[in-house]
């Protein structure tokens, strides 16, 4: 189970309060999911309705960073290039 805090409105909840929008990629980027830390778009569905960024390990589901678009973190340890 994922526990997420929206970086915009600070509402916290499990995965059912949010919607995953896929990989945090630019249009036309053909990357697909792999085992490791991936950056994703998530929607604060039950709160403010904002999209934000989230870095999650697809194997152990650990969340290593959450950010507002435009404030992306630098490369994270274990992140898939």
């Amino acid at each position: 189970m994922l526990l997420i805090t929206c970086p915009v409105c600070s509402i916290a909840g499990d995965e059912t309060e949010f919607t995953c929008g896929g990989l945090y990629t630019a249009p036309g980027d053909q990357r697909v999911y792999a085992r490791g830390i991936s950056r994703e778009w998530w929607l604060c569905e039950s709160g403010c309705g904002s999209w934000f960024g989230l870095a999650r390990h697809t194997g152990n589901q650990r969340i290593s960073a959450i950010w507002v678009p435009g404030e992306e973190p630098d490369a994270l340890p274990g992140e898939i290039a």
Binding site: M1, T19, C20, Y33, Q61
Partner: peptide, 14 residues
């Protein structure tokens, strides 16, 4: 299925 991709093979309470 879970509503997000992953390789975890884990359960989730929801």
């Amino acid at each position: 299925t879970d509503r997000y991709p992953g390789y975890s093979r884990r359960g989730s309470l929801p």
